[in-house]
Simulated scan of single mutants.
Amino acid sequence: MSRELKLQRERQEAAELARRQAEAAAERERNLFTHFVGAVTPLPHTDRFAFEQAPPTPRRLQHELDEERVLHEAMSDEFDVSTLLDVDDQLSFRRPGIGLDVTHKLRAGHWSIQRQLDLHGLRSDEAREALGQFIRLAHRTGLRCVRVVHGKGLGSPGKTPVLKSKVQRWLVQKKEVLAFVQARPAEGGAGALVVLLQPGKRKLY
């Protein structure tokens, strides 16, 4: 019996010795960096780098600009231009701040006509869309003077130039338009308008 108790005690002592050796080895491993490098001072929390959140999903900027441009393109048929037109022998328009000399020069051909839009044969909604796109593109590409042919209305019911008055309303609502006058007889006369545009930065597309 005593022999068996002795063996049991020796096994317990051996197990305890092994445990202490294992703990000592673990402690040495934990202190290995300090042992070779020396004492270290932890960095203050304020110097820690905080990762930024993931950037937001890119916006479809060009699409939004196009949508905004379409909204600005909405030209009303009900817009009253009677107070904005110069009443002379040939109705003309000049934006506030533009002198009479501008319409006089425009009528005299001071600016060369660089592009033309012919609205003959188009329905009212088609003509409005075509005119809006034409003015926008002309301004975007740096053109200053264009002609818009709306016709004299001789083929309309009652021979009333409906499209002519609508074109005047639409042009007045376009911010790119500085002035317009009725074309000279050789350039279309009462069936066309010569339009002066705001100076624009030329862009190639």
Results as ranks from 00 to 15, higher is better:
146 V>Q: 04
160 T>C: 08
67 E>A: 15
92 S>C: 01
76 S>K: 04
42 P>Y: 06
165 S>M: 09
107 R>E: 06
10 E>F: 05
132 G>F: 01
89 D>S: 14
135 I>Q: 03
15 A>F: 11
101 D>L: 10
97 G>T: 04
178 L>T: 08
126 E>K: 03
5 L>F: 02
75 M>W: 07
132 G>N: 06
167 V>Q: 01
85 L>M: 12
50 A>G: 09
9 R>N: 10
164 K>Y: 08
160 T>F: 14
198 Q>V: 10
114 Q>A: 12
155 G>Q: 15
203 K>D: 13
146 V>G: 00
167 V>G: 03
40 V>M: 13
170 W>R: 04
112 S>F: 04
41 T>W: 14
108 A>E: 12
76 S>N: 03
6 K>R: 12
164 K>E: 09
24 A>K: 05
9 R>F: 02
138 A>R: 00
105 K>H: 11
153 G>Y: 02
171 L>H: 04
153 G>M: 09
56 P>M: 03
116 Q>I: 12
110 H>M: 09
168 Q>W: 02
27 E>H: 03
145 C>W: 02
128 R>S: 11
62 Q>K: 03
48 R>K: 07
191 G>F: 04
56 P>H: 01
150 H>S: 12
4 E>P: 03
166 K>A: 11
84 L>P: 01
47 D>R: 08
65 L>E: 00
11 R>T: 11
100 L>Q: 14
186 A>F: 10
148 V>S: 05
182 Q>R: 13
148 V>L: 06
146 V>L: 01
146 V>K: 00
166 K>L: 15
141 T>M: 09
120 H>D: 08
164 K>R: 15
104 H>G: 10
29 E>S: 11
147 R>E: 08
24 A>N: 06
140 R>Y: 15
62 Q>L: 13
164 K>D: 07
18 A>L: 15
107 R>V: 09
164 K>A: 15
197 L>V: 01
184 R>H: 07
128 R>I: 10
203 K>R: 13
5 L>I: 08
188 G>F: 00
180 F>T: 00
49 F>H: 07
57 T>Q: 06
94 R>M: 07
16 E>H: 12
34 T>H: 09
131 L>S: 01
104 H>Y: 13
162 V>D: 09
25 A>F: 00
162 V>C: 06
27 E>I: 10
199 P>H: 00
78 E>R: 11
134 F>H: 03
45 H>C: 10
120 H>L: 13
87 V>H: 12
169 R>T: 06
67 E>P: 02
28 R>E: 12
70 V>L: 15
45 H>G: 07
